[in-house]
Design a protein around this nucleic acid. Structure first.
Lengths: 223, 223
DNA sequence: CCTATAATTTAGGCATGCCTAAATTAGTTT
DNA sequence: AAACTAATTTAGGCATGCCTAAATTATAGG
């Protein structure tokens, strides 16, 4: 069995690898909030366990085994988030933190029971896909909200889950996965987005919009 | 915040103190499946934190603070056991093991939600009392099954929770807390108990009976 | 090409929590 | 009271996982 720390490293390498191939020691350390020297140490340990590929100064990537373990942990995390949200009513800005601790200790048996209770779901409360038992993840083709233009309509697919203040903010606009909205105006010079959610006009700053991903984009009718 | 290990020590000291006052290093070490030398080390650490009273070669006891923490962990453990049992259908011989891992990471918020879901229960699936939020435990006056005589009727109050094979065995007889039975015969020379559960005759060995505690003992009608 | 800067790695240290082996203390027995 | 036994404590070691500080390597600019 792996230590909690090792599991966290694998999970983080997986996530960073998603957007950028090889993962540098520095990026990984920053993501995990440890010093680069500590990351080097753990990477070496993971290499002896054949969970990562690594050459010094060259970055790190997961092996097939390492990836499988990372996806297992991510599955635990996202199922737990959804379970806490649906079964216990934990607010969506709190589930990440809770799941972060529980993901390392939950058994396969309990996980399977939660999965059944939830009806074998495919996305967590933030819209992130839940890998299945075999580690298969359905990639979504969502685009960042910052790519939207005036007049376009869409549906929220996913939002970043790691900043609970941001989530509370989005929640105050009802900007959950599944919520539809239309862009009324994109202010020039990297300005904010004015959008229409169910008849309500809302202004969303650029920094916030970076963390919102959307699907089903439709151009305005009057083109 | 305390380490998981420290929490386990406090919980164990509490349980051992219940039946026997001061707790010796050896007993504690045996209970925690650790060497006596390791227990001495942790006891010293707990003493500097003022969670235990301790003088070398004299045994250890909890301070008020230490006791409060122990009861908090025990509350986590027992609420989790009941939640896993009732909400997720985990079999009663599996909940102890699961709760043992979860008790150290569950938040007060999630615990409060489980408590509410369960309707503020007072006993776990093995009949052990659940301390309330303020650390108040209702002591039960149960007696060991081994004290029963021919003909007496009673109700199961509590069973030991730490041996899952034993629990499966008891489960196969429907010997759960709340189950009523009548003693048909106590075989002489430390022999087994023959009992009547809902019309079924069952033979219970002495070693098993030691782990079953009963309430509401009534003498036979024909006295 | 060679040097400056930034990233990374190595070296050495610290806390936790376990271990074994040796020394000490308590308590009982003669 | 001395000696023996059993329990306990001390001493020293090991793995994990973090840290800081110093050395090394990569890479880009002149």
């Amino acid at each position: 069995m792996l230590t909690h720390a090792a599991e966290d490293y694998l999970k983080s390498i997986y996530k960073l690898q998603e957007k950028g191939g090889k993962v540098s020691t520095g990026i990984l350390a920053e993501y995990l909030e440890v010093k680069p020297a500590s990351a080097t140490g753990m990477i070496k340990k993971l290499k002896t366990m054949k969970l990562v590929r690594y050459e010094r100064y060259r970055g790190v990537t997961l092996t097939a085994t390492g990836r499988a373990i990372a996806l297992e942990i991510i599955r635990h995390h996202r199922l737990l988030e959804l379970y806490l949200f649906k079964a216990l009513g934990v607010p969506w800005d709190g589930v990440h933190e809770e799941a972060e601790k529980l993901e390392h200790v939950i058994s396969e048996d309990v996980e399977a029971r939660m999965d059944e209770f939830l009806g074998y779901p495919t996305a967590d409360p933030h819209g992130a896909p839940i890998p299945d038992k075999n580690g298969v993840v359905v990639k979504t083709a969502s685009i960042p909200m910052t790519d939207l233009q005036d007049g376009q309509s869409c549906v929220v697919a996913e939002v970043s889950d790691n900043d609970s203040a941001l989530l509370r903010h989005l929640g105050s606009f009802n900007l959950y996965p599944g919520t539809a909205f239309r862009v009324i105006e994109v202010a020039p010079f990297e300005g904010p987005f004015t959008i229409d959610i169910a008849g309500q006009q809302v202004v969303i700053g650029r920094e916030v919009a970076k963390h919102v991903f959307v699907d089903q984009v439709q151009d305005p009718d009057n083109v």
